[in-house]
Design a protein around this nucleic acid. Structure first.
Length: 276
DNA sequence: CGTTGCGCCTGTTAGC
DNA sequence: TGCTAACAGGCGCAAC
């Protein structure tokens, strides 16, 4: 499941392989892949003959800078951007592809089709379609204290606030559980009842988790997340909460539990992650 | 207005 | 053994 570190790994791969390349022979192979106002034909026409100026990211969104506008990409749950040789035989679940002018192709593979491509104008180098997406934990200019103050205005459980991409972006279910564990905070704690200092600690724990995951190339449970070369990440072995139910907490030895929360699994230590 | 819950989608796994 | 139901979950939007 690609979250912030995984999307950043993909961005780096695309920056290396696709930036500076001219696109051509673009094919949208599944109608649902193109979202917002653009049509499949719009994307094909826009990409063909375009130079990729650079590849950028905010939260879980990444985009190919085409100048006036961008190809905006969201990987959803199972999306992959793969660099392939020009003569590679089309694989399963390839939803769209384009060719690069160096004997390579770019595939968008997505088993569950939650991901998509779309076109968005760029204003101040930012896609207008994601104006509502907040900065993320890997952004070196992030004002952690300002985010913490905004989080405190929310009368919601803290895990829900962490997953709200309009407040702080890039966090999904896996890293929410990991940063809550690291900071010793219960996901059901109300954000409004936490101190700003405690919220800052939580966000800093998140930055540490994201940095560590990025160094390991991200988290791969299966082949749903891989980098542009099809390789898995290794952060899974470093997980302390997510998927660790029934195993002893690495901090206090109590058994990690899994509970339903917002219709999703939540993993935490009942001893060292208290609500109050 | 702020907050909460649900459906989209497909492959894998748990359970009867 | 073979089938069905549950599960995985980011996101947008409907509903409260």
């Amino acid at each position: 499941m690609p979250e912030l570190p995984e999307v950043e790994v993909v961005r780096r791969g695309l920056q290396e392989h696709a930036a500076g390349r001219v696109l051509g022979g673009t094919e949208v192979l599944h109608p649902r892949v193109v979202r917002h106002d653009a049509s499949a034909r719009d994307v094909e026409k826009r990409l063909d003959g375009s130079l990729v100026l650079g590849v950028h990211r905010r939260g879980k969104f990444l985009w190919l800078d085409l100048g006036e506008d961008a190809l905006l990409v969201h990987l959803g749950m199972s999306g992959q951007m793969l660099i392939k040789d020009a003569d590679a035989v089309l694989g399963r679940h390839v939803r769209a592809r384009t060719h690069l002018d160096d004997q390579q192709q770019l595939w968008f593979v997505d088993q569950r089709t939650f991901g998509y491509w779309s076109l968005s104008p760029l204003i101040d180098a930012q896609p207008t379609a994601i104006a509502h997406i907040a900065p993320d934990l890997l952004d070196p200019r992030l004002d952690v204290e300002a985010v913490a103050r905004r989080m405190k205005t929310k009368d919601s459980e803290i895990k829900r606030v962490l997953l709200d991409q309009g407040i702080i972006s890039g966090i999904g279910n896996i890293y929410a559980d990991e940063m809550l564990w690291r900071a010793g905070v219960h996901g059901g704690q109300r954000a409004s009842r936490m101190s700003v200092a405690r919220l800052v600690e939580l966000l800093e724990a998140g930055q540490e988790v994201m940095d560590a995951a990025l160094l390991q190339g991200g988290t791969s449970f299966d082949d749903l997340y891989v980098n542009v070369n099809g390789e898995s990440g290794y952060f899974e072995v470093s997980l302390n909460a997510y998927g660790q139910q029934g195993k002893p907490c690495k901090r206090c030895g109590e058994l990690i539990v899994k509970e339903k929360f917002m219709g999703r699994g939540s993993h935490f230590c009942p001893a060292c992650q208290k609500k109050y």
